[in-house]
Simulated scan of single mutants.
Amino acid sequence: MRSIEPIAKFDLAFSLFCLQHKFTHPLSRMSKAVSHTGDGHLYAGIGLLAYLTAGDEGKLFLLVGLLAFAIELPIYWLAKNLFKRRRPEELSDLVTSFITPSDRYSLPSGHTAAAFLMATVTGFYFAELQLFAFVWAALIASSRILLGVHFLTDVLLGALLGILSAQAALGIVGS
């Protein structure tokens, strides 16, 4: 376990850096709004909208998205319960969480995994939206850190999980 101690120390220092400045409270309000867009409702709406309006591409988009989530969610759940990494607020009295997370553990970030999964699938089927989708995913990931519920490595591994899940689904469907 000593091999990950430097990473854990960096993660905590980075969280403290992000959460201990004069803009923390105003930034947390914006971060809540951004984070809420990654709760899942928007993804269902996007998938349905694509299905209804984008012809065969929209149908494939929905199929690949559902398959990608079917791949990502069990891995996410297993990782959370295997690593059981405590959230930033639990590890330091200096870290304040601005929201109540939906589950107990922090690694990986589910919001980030879902956002990068959707960005990857969106970018594949709708290339003109790729930059916007990845910027939005990065904002969701950043919001999770700025809300004090995830460490940097949680969101990095969440992003990797989302991207790899989407690529696996794209490979299975043969798109």
Rank of each mutant, 00 (worst) to 15 (best):
M1H: 10
M1P: 09
R2P: 09
R2H: 13
R2L: 14
S3Q: 13
S3L: 14
E5D: 14
E5P: 05
I7C: 09
I7Q: 12
A8D: 15
A8S: 12
K9I: 12
L12I: 07
L12F: 06
L12E: 12
L12T: 11
F14R: 04
F14M: 09
L16C: 07
F17M: 13
F17C: 10
C18Y: 04
L19Q: 13
Q20K: 15
H21D: 11
K22Y: 08
H25A: 15
H25V: 13
S28E: 03
R29Y: 15
M30T: 12
K32F: 05
V34L: 07
S35F: 02
T37E: 13
D39P: 03
D39G: 10
G40A: 12
L42M: 15
Y43R: 11
I46T: 14
I46F: 15
L48H: 13
A50P: 10
A50I: 09
A50G: 10
A50C: 14
Y51L: 15
T53G: 05
T53M: 11
E57A: 11
F61L: 10
L63I: 09
V64L: 07
L67E: 11
A68Q: 01
F69K: 11
A70K: 06
I71R: 01
I71G: 02
L73W: 02
P74M: 08
I75T: 00
I75N: 02
Y76G: 05
A79H: 05
N81R: 12
F83A: 14
F83M: 13
K84L: 06
K84A: 08
R85F: 08
R86K: 15
R87G: 07
R87V: 02
R87I: 01
R87Y: 00
P88H: 04
L91R: 14
S92V: 08
S92C: 09
D93Q: 14
D93E: 14
T96S: 13
T96P: 03
S97W: 00
S97E: 04
F98H: 10
F98Q: 05
I99P: 08
S102F: 10
S102R: 07
S102E: 15
D103N: 12
D103R: 04
Y105R: 10
Y105M: 09
S106D: 07
P108C: 08
S109Q: 04
G110L: 06
H111P: 01
H111T: 04
A113M: 01
A115H: 01
F116I: 03
L117V: 05
M118V: 07
A119H: 02
T122Q: 06
T122C: 05
T122E: 06
G123W: 09
G123R: 06
G123K: 04
Y125P: 01
F126L: 14
A127C: 05
L129T: 03
L129E: 06
Q130I: 02
Q130W: 03
L131W: 00
F132P: 00
F134C: 00
A137R: 00
A138S: 13
A138K: 00
L139W: 00
I140G: 00
S142V: 00
S143K: 00
L147W: 00
V149E: 05
V149P: 02
L152Y: 07
T153Y: 08
T153V: 13
V155Y: 01
V155E: 03
V155I: 09
A159C: 07
L161C: 04
I163D: 03
L164P: 06
L164R: 14
L164H: 08
Q167Y: 02
A168E: 01
L170Y: 01
G171W: 01
G171N: 11
I172P: 02
I172V: 12
I172M: 06
G174M: 07
G174V: 08
